[in-house]
Design a protein around this nucleic acid. Sequence first.
DNA 1: TCGCCAAACGGAATCTGATTCCATATAGTA
DNA 2: TACTATATGGAATCAGATTCCGTTTGGCGA
Lengths: 194, 194
Amino acid sequence: MTSRNDAVPQTPLRADARRNVEALVEGARTVFARDGVDAHVKDIALEAGVGVATLYRHFPKRTDLVLAVLQHDVDECVETAQELAAAHTPMDALTLWLDRYCAFVLTKHGLAAALQSGEATFAGLGAQLLERLEPTLDELLQGARVTGAMEGGASAMDLLRAVAHLCTPGPAHIDYTRRMITLLLTGLRQDPAT
Amino acid sequence: MTSRNDAVPQTPLRADARRNVEALVEGARTVFARDGVDAHVKDIALEAGVGVATLYRHFPKRTDLVLAVLQHDVDECVETAQELAAAHTPMDALTLWLDRYCAFVLTKHGLAAALQSGEATFAGLGAQLLERLEPTLDELLQGARVTGAMEGGASAMDLLRAVAHLCTPGPAHIDYTRRMITLLLTGLRQDPAT
DNA sequence: TCGCCAAACGGAATCTGATTCCATATAGTA
DNA sequence: TACTATATGGAATCAGATTCCGTTTGGCGA
């Protein structure tokens, strides 16, 4: 899986710079987890032990930083899908994976908010992550469709967005989120009477 | 319908104050529609032709202003429900009303974002509006259930929230929103085979 | 190993917008 | 008409984000 965003910069980063980028991503992960994505820039720089200018040098826009933090988790999500697909019926794998994805979104409380609200951001931050996840979910959906367990034709992208949106109220409202996801799945399944 | 938030202040507002409050709500409506709920406070004051201090005097928190602007539209939404219930089958009324509600949320682009993201806001701004709408939707749901057109037991509040959440990407993505709402309804209906 | 210099750094300076303060103006009453 | 509590507008203050600039340092060539 080499489709990562590892575009090599014109001039390769100096060792200290590389170290700082690393520290910033880690620091951001910590601070985002604590304060949400709207955390103060200064706090992140502090946590990483660098000046704010350094932060801005490497991550001109906040979303760049959010993106970097998430990349790793997204990769994990993709791997999970493959494992689930191997160990369960397609429909179960799908259900389980959505639950996993939901947990992922919730962990980063506020991420959902960042992914949404406003065309610009949606296209920016959202697109990159969702596009990475899309083939994964699509495969699970295809699998479920083949077994006839599912009728509905919602696209993978639709589902990814919907779940993310339904996660917005945050971890405290996970019950609500679960109920709604179940409802969506029911709709997808068009369960032929129960 | 006298359940409005018309708590009379200890000292009744002076005439000029009342006029300014009016102007502020109107100004806010205009500016929110143009710039979204994150519009600059100064712009709103300018549009209303008053100083910022006046704005703060009457609406200490931004949400107070948002709330005031929305109150009227929410009332309209409630009335629409009653009309629809009278003119259609319960299930149709429900579907149509949700579409109306969805349009309402979309009109105020950014409203959804305000309603969400973060427990605090959810409880604050969200609660008041949703609670006003809740009995309305609940009645429609009851109606649909009685006719046997619907099995699912999702609560009115759940649905109100879900639709609002699914509206977050904004008016430009209304197709997505509609698809997802349809899916939810399908889930609710648990259509006994098609 | 040493010295050079482009890359990188940190923190101060600046900018932007929100919030508060206060001297002035006015509605409502006697 | 005069008086006073209520309101007002814009200036002052504050918070946080973003940029600037003099200093430091990694990595390379001699």
